[in-house]
Amino acid sequence: MNVWVTGMAWSTALGDGLAGVWRRLLDGHDGFEALPSEHPLRNPLAATVADPPAGMKPSARQRILAEGTLSRALADAGGPADAYPVLGTSFGALLDDEDGDLWQWAADVAAAVGLRRPPVAVSTACSSGSDAIAVGAAAIRSGAADVSVCGAADVVTPAKRLAHTALRTMSPTRLRAFDRRADGTLLGEGAGFVVLEREEAARARGAVPYAVLAGTGAANDGAGMTAPDPGGTGAELAARRCLASCGLTVEDVAVVNAHGSGTPANDSAESAALARLFGGCERPPVVFATKGALGHTLGATGALEAVAVVLALLDGRAPPIPGLDEVIEGFPLPVATGSASRLRPGAGLSLTLGFGGFITCLAFTPGQRHAH
């Protein structure tokens, strides 16, 4: 059963229009600015959205951010009725605002945009957005729904900045994914949602797809709470399961959106996984990563990067990786550096590695609809 992507929306530190943000990514822009803090941090930079404003309570900001982005995704798809909502986040605002819970946040957002079905709330650390999309696809393939709106939202909060300072996963300089000088990540915030539909239902109402969500795969390496397995075994397994789920091979993959968090441990593990996965590949895919532009948006990252992979497939280009000047030794695949890289026709993978060992891979093939 084919699952079509018929609507997309995102809110990022570079803006919220699909085409506009994509152009800025291709041009190598980033959204980092100094964000004041009353606490000592390793780095004052963060990639935050302009609206809602930073002075609001984190829980209110996250709710408004999710509602607006989800509404735009539904509108972009032509407003399909009775969508099955799947909403993801990491801790969301709960590290700082103790009122409410994650399911209630999802229920409030779904109700605010007029969705009648009770939502599924997904919280699997940094893979929450990817897992929300995978759950939405599973609902369609199981017959539980014809259409699902799925994705995630997350906001920068003082507790998250303090946590990454304490863990020393925050870069004291800048986020340089897969660069030999990489020394940590920088936080961002945003929201991304996609509308998934059963092909037959979408055709019946005249919808045109951005892409086909061809396959999904997941694994958990169980190596630790905050660090991946150094060998990248979980990431490799998730990607292999994803390809096997839809009958694609490594030779079919034209582009990979890597997790690319900029921490040496993560970049090394991901490099090892990609080396084994694509070793001997006659036409290796191009790798790109967006966290150096949008920040590490935690629970939202997988949803934002799914949108980025779809746009890369439709445009035939991958944006450069911000901050990448000297690729780490042994990185196995061509990377987009300096300027956008041309892509051959093929499929795209989005790979997400989360704290707690949560790893998810999504595979997309291009459709006929382009972003405006």
Results as ranks from 00 to 15, higher is better:
M1S: 14
W4S: 05
V5A: 14
T6W: 04
T12Y: 09
A13K: 10
G17T: 14
A19C: 03
R24E: 15
D30P: 02
P36S: 10
S37Y: 01
N43S: 15
G55I: 06
G55E: 15
I64D: 06
L65M: 15
A66C: 14
G79I: 07
A81C: 03
A81N: 03
P85F: 08
L87V: 15
G88R: 10
T89W: 03
T89M: 15
A93I: 00
G100R: 03
G114T: 01
G114K: 10
R116P: 00
P118C: 09
V120P: 00
V122N: 12
V122S: 11
V122A: 10
I133H: 12
V135C: 12
G136S: 11
A137H: 09
G143C: 08
S148R: 11
V149M: 11
V149D: 00
C150H: 10
A152I: 04
V155C: 07
P158T: 15
A163C: 11
H164C: 07
R176Y: 09
F178W: 13
D179I: 02
L187F: 08
L187R: 01
L196K: 13
A207T: 14
V212D: 13
G224K: 06
T226C: 05
T226E: 13
D229Q: 11
P230C: 06
G232L: 04
R241N: 03
G247T: 02
V253K: 04
G260K: 00
S261C: 14
A265Y: 01
A269D: 03
E270T: 05
S271C: 08
C281M: 00
A289I: 08
T297V: 08
V307Y: 06
A308C: 14
G316F: 05
A318C: 07
P319A: 12
L324R: 01
G330H: 08
P345T: 05
C361L: 05
C361N: 05
T365N: 04
Q368V: 12
H372W: 00
H372I: 02
